[in-house]
Design a binder for these strands. Structure first.
Lengths: 196, 196
DNA sequence: AGACTTATCTACCACTCGATACAAAAGTTG
DNA sequence: CAACTTTTGTATCGAGTGGTAGATAAGTCT
């Protein structure tokens, strides 16, 4: 049945380049010219592989989530709620200032507000940010059952707090703050988790 | 010397409309068509009054800062560091979910990452966000001299923490979170300021 | 009134946007 | 090799971008 001409570029490698462009310039600010140049391909190849600019973003977001999942598994494996929080905030401080990537978080930098043809992009990013909060809340629910969160502690509120601080650290990092500044924010934030 | 034809629109009223467009769509996402329609004027009037799209944003940011200054004066007038933090976070929770405005904070929504012609916009917003952090730090320095901040407390770190949480609350609000959610984040954040 | 100054409107500029039509190229299968 | 299928590059689409030229309108000053 004839297999057709094989793709001449590596999809994942191209996605990594696209991710960086979206990360650094946001969805609206990332033009097809920038994307195709970074990916090393021409527009028809991009559209054949990803369908649309939005499809490309979603594929990049999937890849971003995949990268993060291993970190998150380590974070959630912390023995206590406080240790989970400590691991979470530390990993955010490191990853948001990793010189291998643009500063901040793709899910924040990608676009909190967009133009007329891209109204659903902010929703897409928000729903992906929400996933992390859910993971934390479920872990803190478990911590409460385990007894290492006091009776007055609110797992949902703590998860939302951590998620909010993480977003804020994304904004801070994108402003050029260095790693130590983010570590300091992480340390102060831990006040919400009384030491065992 | 002849005064010339008077301006037929109210500059501040027009700025308020422009502010809302930038707030809701970000700098790149706000097109001249959207801006002129919202302001009720034509492009030549806009350019005569504000010079450029970037000039319009800066004028809107000035107006935004002016609006906030009274709130900030109230915040900084708190008797103790903890009361300042409490007032700050509460005012953020209210203002970022004020139905009279787009959700979140203009200084965050306006654009953390921009396209090729607007590289300096994120810097402009970041420098304005930094002003609030400086005000808080100076107030906490004073609190330390006054003795209502313990010897182990770090005024700069606490100010950066609050500023970071405020940015995070902006992201959270822009995702559709309601006022109670932000209030809860404010409450948890206050853990960093031991009660007197 | 008439000269002068500034704002406004219509129409448009060159350019970029995201996206695509078409034909040549590069493979696999019979 | 010949038939078939898919990808690739060139060249371009219509729409929208930020911004402006030039004429007209609406005031103030002498």
């Amino acid at each position: 049945m004839a297999m057709g001409r094989p793709r001449s570029f590596d999809t994942d490698k191209a996605l990594d380049e696209a991710m960086e462009v979206f990360w650094r310039h946001g969805y609206d600010g990332a033009s097809l010219a920038m994307l195709t140049k970074a990916m090393g391909i021409k527009p028809p190849s991009l559209y054949a592989a990803f369908g649309s600019k939005e499809g490309l973003l979603k594929a990049a977001l999937d890849r971003y989530a995949q990268r993060r999942s291993e970190h998150m598994r380590y974070v959630l494996a912390g023995a206590t709620a406080r240790e989970v929080a400590e691991r979470f905030l530390s990993s955010i401080a490191e990853s948001h200032t990793d010189p291998a990537n643009p500063p901040g978080c793709l899910l924040v930098q990608g676009g909190l507000a967009c133009g007329e043809g891209s109204e659903n992009i902010p929703f897409e990013l928000a729903s992906r940010r929400a996933l992390t909060e859910v993971e934390l809340r479920e872990r803190f629910d478990q911590a409460k059952q385990d007894g290492d969160l006091g009776g007055d502690a609110d797992p949902a509120a703590l998860a939302r707090f951590l998620s909010t601080v993480a977003s804020g650290m994304g904004v801070l990092a994108s402003s050029g703050a260095d790693r130590d500044a983010l570590r300091e924010v992480a340390r102060v934030s831990l006040s919400a988790f009384p030491a065992t």
